[in-house]
Simulated scan of single mutants.
Amino acid sequence: MTIFQLVLNIWLSITWESRAFLHNLWFYPLCLFLFWYNALVATHNFVHTPWFRSNLLNNLYAIVNSANLYSPVTHYRHIHFNHHRYGNDRQDVHGKTEDHSSTFAYGKNGESENVITYCALAILRDDITESFRQITHKESLQLYLECGTCLLAIIGYLLISWKFFLFFVLPVFYFGWFLTYLANYYEHFGAIPENLYANSTSHYGRIYNFLFCNEGYHQEHHLRPNVHWSQRPQVYENLRKQLDGVVRVILKFPPPLGFIHHRGKIETSVRQTVQY
């Protein structure tokens, strides 16, 4: 899917001005879905369980895929592993969170931030300089190559068709990340950061998990992040006693539709203090 996304984008940039704008509109939902799926599922799984045994092939894939996301995959990995390390933590006494993508980072009165501002501002708050400060010497070349690929993609699209870049690439980039952070928000909203078995939410619907590589098993993923996505249901079975022994959020709807589940409810993380 990521290779198809790249090829489609290149083809669209070349042919964009040969079609009427109304005809180009048909490609918005498809490319928005591809971008979202890439960030939420493909790249997410790649940083945890890389596709290849060869480091060279994995590095090449990360470079190519960075052009799809217009953001370095190595930076994605640093941000995401930071999230796993600190688990959507609450603000400390200084009003700071260790998890840079925590839903509590910009919240007030100990609650999560509003979902709209969280999703709308998340990509604008993204600080790539943090990754440059944290990378090892071994990773530095990889990050620079991925940044260079992102820059080449942007310059290439601008040279081929500035209209394509302005009216297609930028909106898909922004709203693609918006939807990614929307899913991330409800994968943690209402959960209890202090409880290892309830610091994320889960959704066990078969259709969503079939289409999205068991992304609904998010609590299980946090407990065993390096387990391949196909084995997440087994993680639930292995830890069923602990998981069923706590009060935790199990979404009736997939995380991108989590607002339906939480409609009219008090935030779980504020009113519950389950011990583990």
Results as ranks from 00 to 15, higher is better:
residue 83 H to Y: 04
residue 218 H to S: 10
residue 45 N to S: 08
residue 44 H to S: 12
residue 87 G to I: 09
residue 216 G to F: 01
residue 127 D to S: 10
residue 81 F to R: 12
residue 115 V to E: 05
residue 178 F to C: 03
residue 38 N to M: 10
residue 238 N to W: 05
residue 44 H to G: 13
residue 226 N to R: 09
residue 88 N to H: 03
residue 274 V to W: 05
residue 37 Y to M: 00
residue 221 H to R: 08
residue 100 H to F: 12
residue 252 K to V: 13
residue 18 S to P: 03
residue 114 N to T: 05
residue 32 L to G: 10
residue 130 E to L: 15
residue 115 V to G: 04
residue 218 H to A: 00
residue 94 H to F: 14
residue 276 Y to D: 13
residue 130 E to A: 15
residue 60 L to Y: 12
residue 229 W to A: 04
residue 13 S to F: 00
residue 232 R to K: 06
residue 86 Y to E: 02
residue 252 K to S: 14
residue 223 L to Y: 11
residue 49 T to L: 03
residue 33 F to L: 13
residue 64 V to S: 13
residue 267 E to H: 06
residue 119 C to W: 02
residue 255 P to V: 11
residue 221 H to Y: 05
residue 93 V to A: 15
residue 268 T to M: 02
residue 139 E to F: 01
residue 2 T to G: 11
residue 265 K to Y: 02
residue 159 L to K: 02
residue 193 P to H: 00
residue 65 N to F: 15
residue 82 N to K: 06
residue 39 A to C: 12
residue 41 V to R: 04
residue 129 T to C: 06
residue 213 C to L: 13
residue 187 E to H: 07
residue 153 A to Y: 06
residue 176 G to C: 11
residue 102 S to F: 06
residue 142 Q to P: 00
residue 223 L to R: 11
residue 224 R to G: 01
residue 91 Q to V: 09
residue 183 A to K: 09
residue 215 E to H: 15
residue 150 C to A: 07
residue 187 E to D: 13
residue 217 Y to E: 07
residue 84 H to N: 02
residue 37 Y to E: 02
residue 45 N to Y: 02
residue 261 H to S: 14
residue 210 F to H: 09
residue 61 Y to W: 12
residue 57 L to H: 09
residue 38 N to C: 11
residue 223 L to M: 09
residue 16 W to A: 08
residue 245 G to V: 05
residue 80 H to N: 06
residue 142 Q to S: 09
residue 127 D to W: 03
residue 218 H to E: 03
residue 197 Y to S: 13
residue 109 N to E: 10
residue 144 Y to A: 11
residue 37 Y to W: 10
residue 34 L to I: 00
residue 154 I to P: 00
residue 53 R to Y: 03
residue 191 A to D: 00
residue 197 Y to M: 09
residue 72 P to I: 14
residue 264 G to P: 01
residue 32 L to Y: 11
residue 129 T to F: 10
residue 191 A to G: 01
residue 136 T to L: 09
residue 249 V to T: 11
residue 144 Y to L: 15
residue 192 I to M: 08
residue 201 T to A: 05
residue 235 V to E: 12
residue 265 K to C: 06
residue 36 W to T: 15
residue 164 F to W: 13
residue 266 I to S: 06
residue 239 L to Y: 12
residue 200 S to C: 14
residue 33 F to W: 08
residue 136 T to Q: 10
residue 228 H to Q: 09
residue 131 S to L: 08
residue 102 S to D: 04
residue 262 H to D: 01
residue 44 H to F: 00
residue 239 L to G: 03
residue 38 N to H: 12
